[in-house]
Amino acid sequence: MTVTDNALHAALAPPASRIRLVVSDMDGTLLTPEKQITHHSLAAVQALKDAGIPLCLVSSRPPAGIEMYFDVLKLGTSYGALNGGTIFNADGTVRSRLALDPEAVQDALDMLKVHHLDAWLFRGHEWLVDNETGAYVESERQILRMDPQVVSSFAGSTTGVGKITGSSTDYGAVARQEAEIGMLLQGRASVARSSEWFLDITPLEANKGHALRLLAAQYGVDPSEVACIGDMDNDVPMFKAAGLSIAMGQAPDWVAAQAHFVTASNTQEGWSKAIQDLVLPRVVSGA
């Protein structure tokens, strides 16, 4: 870590000694690189249930991309989609929803086009693309198990947008647009990478910290008694909101610096280890 990273970590408040709720990211965290959930992670999920601790998922994914894992996880909790901008009840009904201002949507689309990033729009359960052959469309189609709606233009589709995703195989371009679009939309939207190749643009309050606070309130838990786990830039807002924050082992240094602890990577059972070693002891102790 750099001197700046060390300073960020040193400035953190002490980690919580009591945990009553867990909020987790999915890709790069609960899921392996192959988008699977390991037997060890399933056992850790069951251990949380046995301890009476709800587990809520918050992801940049659209709702269908989260719901597809509920059967294997046997989850019956609320969850946050589109980077936390839409909170769903366990039965799939909308609990709260935020949308981007149409002018901000157009400004973001213009910037993505100029810098040759593919743009996707998410509205509720809709996924709109104007380039069906874009580098990541097919892989995302397989991951989400849903087909995009292909449009010739995004004109007329700028209202009710919960998330814009910009994508490119040029990771440097994605990083640069995180900064440039972030400046352009400052005060109007949240802009953060959810991976090296995806840039997510969501309503200003639509971040995982916002989702964590809403979910904590729903379950009658103070954010100081929430543990969260994540691996990317868009997880930092929930690190800041939670009483206990855990970064995955493969997280970038500046992200890891803003978490209380770093677990193993998502190729080395990092999620289950975090639950067993860092979360459950704080449930059992009740300190």
Rank of each mutant, 00 (worst) to 15 (best):
K208T: 09
G182N: 14
A192E: 11
V279Q: 14
V114Q: 10
G209W: 15
S60N: 14
A179P: 00
V255K: 12
W271D: 10
L75V: 06
P148L: 01
Y79W: 10
T77D: 08
L55W: 13
T165K: 00
C228M: 14
D222Y: 00
G270R: 00
T133C: 15
L117Y: 04
K273N: 13
E180R: 10
T86L: 04
Y136G: 09
I164V: 04
L42V: 06
A47M: 11
A211W: 13
V150G: 03
H40P: 01
N83G: 12
S152P: 02
T93W: 12
R20W: 04
K163T: 07
Q177T: 03
S245K: 11
Q218E: 15
D110R: 07
A81C: 04
S245N: 09
H9L: 01
L204W: 00
R141L: 08
C228P: 15
V191G: 02
W254F: 14
L100A: 00
G270Y: 02
D25N: 11
P54S: 07
R18A: 11
Q177G: 04
Q149G: 04
S195G: 07
Y136C: 01
L98G: 04
A13C: 03
T29Y: 12
L215M: 12
L112P: 06
G172H: 12
N83K: 04
A257D: 01
S152E: 12
T29C: 15
